[in-house]
C-alpha cells in the first residue's frame, strides 16, 4: 500500500508502507573524524566534536556544515578518531608530580637575599 501524505514530496516519492526493513551493516555510516575549529587567525584550533565520513575530504565538508553554521570560524582540521592517541583519566595521577618540580618554577629562585648578604660581607 502506498503512503498517502499531506506532504506532496512524499506522494511524489511513491513510498510503500509495508516493506522489508532495511538493515544497516557495520561501517555503513563509516568511521568518525574528530573536528578542530579555529575561530580567528592567531588562536589555537579547538576540538568541537566529531563527524562520520567516508574520507577526509567529505569529513571537512560535513565538519563545515555541522560546526560552522553559526558564529565565527576561519579554519577547520579533521583527523580520524582511530589515529588519535590519548591518556586515560584513570591514570591522571601521572600529572600529579608537577607540584613537586619546583625547579621548573621561576618563583623558586630567590637571589636577592644572597646578593644582600654578599654585599654586607664584602663591604666590611
Amino acid at each position: 500500500m502506498k503512503i498517502v501524505s499531506l506532504d506532496p514530496r512524499v506522494n511524489r516519492s511513491s513510498i510503500n508502507e509495508t516493506e522489508e526493513s532495511v538493515v544497516l551493516k557495520k561501517l555503513d555510516q563509516f568511521q568518525t573524524y574528530e573536528v578542530f575549529a579555529q575561530t580567528k587567525r592567531g588562536v589555537h584550533h579547538v576540538h568541537v566534536g566529531s563527524v562520520h565520513a567516508a574520507n577526509k575530504k567529505i569529513a571537512v565538508l560535513f565538519a563545515k556544515e555541522q560546526y560552522a553554521r553559526r558564529g565565527k570560524c576561519v579554519n577547520i582540521w579533521v583527523v580520524k578518531t582511530s589515529d588519535i592517541a590519548t591518556t586515560e583519566y584513570e591514570d591522571s595521577d601521572i600529572f600529579d608530580t608537577l607540584d613537586e618540580k619546583t625547579h621548573r618554577n621561576p618563583e623558586s629562585y630567590k637571589v636577592l637575599n644572597r646578593i644582600k648578604e654578599y654585599k654586607e660581607r664584602t663591604s666590611k
Binding site: 561501517l27 568511521q31 568518525t32 578518531t81
Partner: peptide
C-alpha cells in the same frame, strides 16, 4: 572495508 571504527572521543 579496511577502515576501522572506534567510538568518537567525546
Amino acid at each position: 572495508e579496511s577502515e576501522t571504527y572506534v567510538t568518537p572521543l567525546s
